[in-house]
Amino acid sequence: EARRNVEVMWLIGRLAPDHKTIADFRKDNGAAIRKVCAKFVALCRQMGLLQTPSVAIDGSKFKAVNNRDRNFTHAKIARRMAQIEESVGRYLRQLDSADRQDPSEAISIKTTRIKEKIARLKQEMSRLEVLDAQMRNTPDQQISLTDPDARSMATSGRGSGVVGYNVQVAVDTEHHLIVTHEVINVGNDRGQLARMSKQAKEVLEVDKLEAVADRGYFDGEEILACEEAGVAVTLPKPMTSNAKAEGRFGKQDFAYLPDEDVYRCPSGQLLPYHFTNIEHGMTLRRYWSTAACQGCAIKSQCTPSKERRITRWEHEHVVEEVQRRLDSDPDAMRRRRETVEHPFGTIKARMGATHFL
């Protein structure tokens, strides 16, 4: 309006913000802006708008100002260097061809231009070598030039991606108010469930909290951390089993009998416990029965191996409780979508946001 509306221009003496005004304001007042967000939530609580201790959690990728060509990983640099080497080789062949022709002004101009291109490519190669060295010193082996905090992230489209940020929000399920938010540069949501749930619980000042999220947040240790913090989470488990994908019985077709510490398979046979081992810091128990599998009439529907082995995490009961909550409330995922994706739709579409500054 300061640049468009004549009355406003007159009123403020033709003062107008430039492209850095908002960016500088955010940079200089970051702490105050966060306090305003906290005050807003406190006000909503005073008005009785946050009575339901239930939130939906989600993340969305926002494009940064950093262009894809200004973001580098080892694979990108290696690919670009290979392209440069191929181009230099092609130009050198052109120089050899020019040397075999009779000297002329046109050939001289062409030769000079090719040599300039080769010099520029070698300069670019040197720049990439410097960037590669810098990138190898970063924790995540990635470097962005325009916006140093931005990171290359995969998005939902096949083969697509964005250089930007992952914005996490927890939204109140009753009035769709953003309870808490976090901007991170990690490209996936797997490690964010417990942190966002705990922040929401702290902001709402409740002893118990219900949280619903999508399958991208599924992680056993995160779910356990939520359970220990008094947060009951509901989310679907991603299908990662090759057996299910190939039309065979999945782990969910085997029933665990806690009193006997055995699994019951689809044919009714019992698979006893054999041993415990630790993988990636997780204590895992192994169950199987070679004898039961050898004489099983439906073994072809279960496993191509000698016997079917079942692995159980020591805190598997926590994950099973999440699945029971989801089974008893099949509309939870629809409510999650209608609740937590609404703010992102507002930011990205209605307000015309293109870059996240």
Rank of each mutant, 00 (worst) to 15 (best):
A2M: 14
A2K: 03
R3T: 12
V8A: 10
M9E: 09
L11W: 15
D18H: 08
G30R: 11
F40K: 14
R45D: 10
Q46V: 04
G48C: 13
L49R: 09
L50N: 06
Q51F: 13
T52D: 14
T52M: 14
V55I: 12
A56R: 13
G59C: 13
K63E: 15
K63Y: 14
N66S: 11
T73W: 01
I77K: 12
A78L: 12
A78N: 14
R79C: 09
Q83V: 08
V88D: 07
Y91W: 15
L95I: 10
T112E: 05
R113C: 00
I114K: 03
K115P: 00
I118W: 13
A119E: 00
A119Q: 04
L121G: 03
L121E: 03
Q123M: 07
M125S: 14
S126T: 11
S126N: 13
R127G: 06
I143Q: 01
D147L: 13
P148N: 01
M153W: 08
R158T: 15
G159T: 13
G164P: 08
Y165D: 11
T173S: 11
H175P: 05
V179D: 11
T180N: 13
T180H: 15
H181Y: 09
V186D: 02
G187M: 08
D189M: 00
R190N: 00
R190L: 04
K198W: 02
K198Y: 02
Q199A: 04
E202W: 10
V203S: 07
L204W: 08
A211Y: 05
A211R: 15
D219E: 04
G220N: 07
I223F: 01
C226S: 03
E228N: 08
G230I: 03
G230D: 06
T234H: 07
T234V: 04
T234Y: 02
L235S: 06
M239H: 13
M239S: 13
M239A: 15
K244N: 12
E246R: 10
L257M: 01
D259H: 06
D259Q: 04
L271M: 10
P272E: 15
Y273M: 08
I278T: 14
T283D: 09
R286D: 07
Y287C: 05
A291R: 15
A292Y: 06
Q294F: 11
A297N: 01
I298R: 06
K299L: 01
Q301N: 09
C302M: 08
K306Y: 07
E307N: 09
E307V: 07
T311S: 09
E314T: 04
H315R: 10
V318N: 02
V319S: 06
Q323S: 05
R325E: 03
S328K: 12
S328A: 05
S328L: 09
R334G: 05
T346F: 04
R350W: 03
H355G: 02
L357R: 03
